[in-house]
Design a binder for these strands. Sequence first.
DNA 1: CTGAAAGCGCTTACAG
DNA 2: CTGAAAGCGCTTACAG
Lengths: 355, 355
Amino acid sequence: MAHRQPVIAPPAANMPERKRLTLKDLAAEIDVHYSTVSRVMNPATRHLVADEVAARILQLAEQRGFRPNRIAAGLRTQRSGLVGVVLPDIANPVFPPILAGIESVLARDGYVPIVVNAGADKSRQRFVIDQLMGRQVEGLVLATAERDDPILDYCLKLSIPVVMVNRGEPTGCASCVVSDGLLAMQLTVDHLVKLGHRRIGHIAGPETTSTGQQRREGFLQAVKRHRLRRDDYAVVEAVSYSREAGREACAELFQALPGLTAIAAGNDLVAMGCYDYLREHGIRCPDDVSVVGHNDMPFVDALTPPLTTIRIAVHEMGEQAATLLLKKIGKPEAPVVSVSLTPELVVRGSTAAPR
Amino acid sequence: MAHRQPVIAPPAANMPERKRLTLKDLAAEIDVHYSTVSRVMNPATRHLVADEVAARILQLAEQRGFRPNRIAAGLRTQRSGLVGVVLPDIANPVFPPILAGIESVLARDGYVPIVVNAGADKSRQRFVIDQLMGRQVEGLVLATAERDDPILDYCLKLSIPVVMVNRGEPTGCASCVVSDGLLAMQLTVDHLVKLGHRRIGHIAGPETTSTGQQRREGFLQAVKRHRLRRDDYAVVEAVSYSREAGREACAELFQALPGLTAIAAGNDLVAMGCYDYLREHGIRCPDDVSVVGHNDMPFVDALTPPLTTIRIAVHEMGEQAATLLLKKIGKPEAPVVSVSLTPELVVRGSTAAPR
DNA sequence: CTGAAAGCGCTTACAG
DNA sequence: CTGAAAGCGCTTACAG
C-alpha cells in the first residue's frame, strides 16, 4: 500500500534558485580579490589578511551562508578529507558503535567517513575499495579482515593507509585495534571455574577470523592453566557467528562433551543459539548448563536468563582505529601499531554453580 | 592494556610509491590525447572513440589499475555523486537496515552515502548539514525529522533535494517514506480484541515524532472502531523511545487504567520497558497482561516471552527513500511523494487471551 | 574519430 | 597586506 499524494504547492517560480556561492561571488561583492577571501575562510591563513578586511569578509560569508567547496579545495590540495570504512555487514550490532567512534574522532579533524557494506565476498570487497580509491579516500578502515586476507595485500600494494578494526591480522603489516580475546576467555573460564564448573565446552567462531582463533586459543590456555583434564573440555567450531550456527554447534558440543556443565560461546549470537538448543532439549540455563557470551550486544541483558558475557570497548575501538588512521595519513612512516583493548566480564543470570 | 608492537619491516625504500595515476599519465604511455582517454573511461562517451584505440586504452587502464579521479570529475561536472544521510543515533537498531537499503540503491547509480550521526540537537544537526553542503552533497536523507522541524525549512531554503525516512512531516514540503502507523495500530488492536481483550492501554512515543503521533492516532481510531468504552482504554506518553521511558510509562498506565489486560507499546524498546515493569511487579506476560511491540527489532524473538510485534519494511524503507532522492536529484521539479509502507503483525508469545 | 582549449572552485607560491 | 597567475584532474563543446 504505497499511496502517493500530489504536490501540495507548485515549485514557486521565484524560489531562491541559488547556485552555490563561490569565492569569486563573495569577492565581487566586497571588491577584493578572491584569493583574499580564500585566505580568510581558512583559519590557518586568516592572519595574512588585515583584520578589518577579514572581519568584513567573514561577516558577509556568514550572512550569505557561504561554505567553501571542499571538493575543489580537495582537488587542489590533494586531500579529500574522506576516509573509507569497509564493513562486512552493517546489520551486525557490533558495528554501529564502532562506526560512531570512528566518526567522532574523524570529525575532529574535519574528515568524514564513507561507509560501505561490502559483504564477505573478497572480489566484491576489492570492487568496493576500487570505488573508494576513485573517490580519493585518504585512508581505509577495514572491519572485514581475515587470516591471510588478500584484501590487505591489495591495500598495501595501493599504498593507502589502512587500519583494521575488530578483527586483526597477525602479520604486522598494518595497524589494528581489537578487543583482547585471550584475556576475555581467561575471564570467562576463571568465572566458570570459580563457580565450580569442571567440564566446559567452547564454541569457537570461524577459524578464518582472528577473533575466532584468538578466543579459541584463549580458552585453551585458560583451561590448561586451571589444569582441566583433556577429556573435561572440548572445542567445536561454529560455521559462522550466527544464532543458527550456534545452535548447531551446541548440538555437536553435547556430542563431543557429554555431561558438560558450562559453555563459553564464541559470541553473543552463538550464545543465543545455545539458548535455542537448550530450550528445545529441556535443558535449563543456568540450572543445568551455564552459558557465557562475548560482545555484550544490546539487549542481551533482556534475554531469559540475562546473558553473562564479555563487554568489549566497542566505541573506543572505533575511536582508536580512527586515531591510528589519522596518524598514518599525516605521517605515512608512522609505526605499525597493534592495540588490544581490555574487555570486561559482565555477570548476569546465565551462569551459576553446577548442580 | 594497549600494548604496541614495533614495526616489523622498515618501509621498503623501493616501495611502489605510486602517485595516483591520471588521465595524462595513461595518455602519455599510449601517445594519445588525454581527452581521448577520458572519453574511453566513461562508458557513455566510449563510442566516440575508435574501437581499436578504446580497447588499447581500456587494457592499459586495467593493467595499471587506473581509477579516474571522481573528485576532479565532480568538480568539472558539478556532481559530487555524494548523498548525505543524517541520523539521530546510529546505535538505534532500526537504522542499520535502512542504511543498507539506502546504500544499495545509491550504488546502482554510482552514488555513495556520507553518514553522519547528528544526535537530536537541532543546532548540531544544522552544523552537520552545513558540513555536508560544503562537501557538495547532491541530496539529503533525513532520519531526524520532527513535527515542524526547523531543519526541514533550512534544507528547503538551501534548495537541496531532501527526503525524510522513518519519520515523516505532514506538511508535504518534502518527500518521505515511513511505515504505516495507522495500519500498524489497527492490526495490533484487532489482534488484541480478537483474543478477547477489552481493556487496552497504549504507550505512545513522544508527540514530537510523527511516528508517536500517528501510532497514537491509529490506536484511538482502532479502539473506537471496536467500540471500546471510553474508560476501557487509555493512552500515556513515554518521554522517549527507550526501555527506561517505557518502564516508567508502564507504571503510569497501570494507574490510568487499572485492570488492563493488554498493552500496545509505541515500539519494541518501550515494550521491553513494559517487560521490566511487569517482571518487577510479579505480573506475568502473557498470562496476566499481553504486550505488543512495534518495529520487530533484531532478537526480540529471543526475549521471554518472544515479543509479538509489528514488522516494518525497514530495508525497503531505505531503498524507497534513496530512489525518491535520486529521482529528485535528477529532476528537481519531481513531485513530492509520501510513501507509506505496509507493516505486518508478527504474533509470538507475548500475547494471549485474557484470563 | 581525435586534439586543443576552456573552465569547474579552490590554494598557494610569487610579486609588488 | 593584497593581487595575479598557475594548476589540481577532470569533461566537453568546438574544430578539424
